[in-house]
Design a protein around this nucleic acid. Structure first.
Lengths: 210, 210
DNA sequence: TGTACATCAGTGAACGCGCGTTCACTGATGTAC
DNA sequence: TGTACATCAGTGAACGCGCGTTCACTGATGTAC
């Protein structure tokens, strides 16, 4: 994802060939990018075709309909998000407080940099939310958080319910993401440092103030 | 708001009169209800006209364009939300922990019962977010929360920064609202009691673990 | 009280728009012999 | 290696749809005299 328009168009029309190299992947990437740039509301399949330099009929060789592409984009979103979470944790150390905090911050970063897809992942039509790959990838991501908290609690002799703590943390970082994306903090507390707030709140939610 | 279709239609066509009693208000109410029932994406001004029993040209006697109606609906949303918050606090007592918790729960209740408008209030187009009445009403609502926390802290000799605590609480209940609305908890922790979680988390975020 | 008239709030038909999707087609590719 | 042919992945034109908005209009209302 995150290809430039030029890159997409190169991929799209490889040296004047009639057949496209991999239109399926190119279209998904085009949709992913358009949605992030302009939002899912302003997205149209026709735009994605234009970006990929194919006719508006071409997608139907690869997808049943528009929703099938969007479900694919949504799944990619969860993959990308989990990848960021794993990366953040591994940079700080598995099962450490720093790792858990970094994971929360990565969640917010993802929402900020890929806001359109983030909205699709969490507020999209049921047709997208309920596809099995999407549900499974979502569960993976949350499961990873629980795992990190479990390791942390065991290592520190804490008897918290890791699942309950994880849900609270998720709730918090999700709220932070949404409010940040929608410029709501800005209007009310203009110079809020969201990452610092997360680093501050997570120990509290772990039941370890201070 | 929250009129039944019949009520709207009675309001809409008072006893065969050519002139409508108060089409402006009726249209706003119709939009408000349609958006809550079917979501802002599925909403069309034409539908609202049908519900109000007027032609699709009629709104242009009262509003510049579609966005002007939506901005009005968004403002109504903030009014309704603040009203619920005030009601919840007053039922529990000003500046009490119970009042603050009830306020958070009211936020979630509002998101659940008026999800379409909630999305408009927080995720709508900039044209809606940036109208002055909307900004002002949003600030009012948040200011009320800060006020309650300030009273509480002073009464208990706590030296927390009420603003910082308020932002954390807002973040938390906003996240809970979003995840609940979008059926995300359901897929991951099916029998979560969200209100209990809020009652649990708020003291933690106040820096007063439970 | 009655009439003339300006103003206002509706109507209904039409517009252009861009969308998702379908259709019959055609050019390119790969395989069998 | 060369040819015949089935298959596949595109094209381009057309479709029906519902939308927001505009237009000239008309019926109802309220006011001045």
């Amino acid at each position: 994802m995150a290809m430039t328009t030029e890159e997409l168009q190169e991929t799209a029309a490889p040296k004047g060939k009639y057949h496209h190299g991999d239109l399926r992947q190119t279209l998904i990437a085009a949709c992913y990018d358009i949605i992030n740039e302009r939002g899912a509301d302003a997205f149209s399949l026709a735009d994605a075709c234009r970006l990929a330099n194919v006719s508006t009929a071409a997608p139907y060789r690869h997808f049943k309909d528009r929703d099938e592409i969007l479900a694919e984009v949504t799944a990619r979103g969860f993959e990308a998000m989990t990848a960021r979470a794993v990366e953040a944790v591994e940079a700080q150390g598995e099962g450490t407080l720093e790792g858990i905090v970094a994971m929360g911050q990565a969640y917010v970063d993802f929402a900020l940099s890929e806001g359109g897809v983030f909205r699709l992942m969490f507020g999209g039509a049921p047709a997208l939310q309920d596809s099995e790959p999407v549900i499974e990838l979502g569960n993976n991501c949350f499961g990873y958080l629980i795992q990190q908290i479990t390791i942390y609690c065991m290592a520190h002799g804490m008897e918290q319910d890791a699942g309950a703590v994880a849900v609270k943390m998720w709730t918090f970082v999700h709220g932070a993401s949404a409010l940040l994306m929608d410029d709501k903090y800005e209007k009310v507390t203009p110079d809020l440092d969201v990452k610092a707030m997360i680093a501050d709140a997570i120990p509290m939610l772990l039941g370890k103030p201070g």
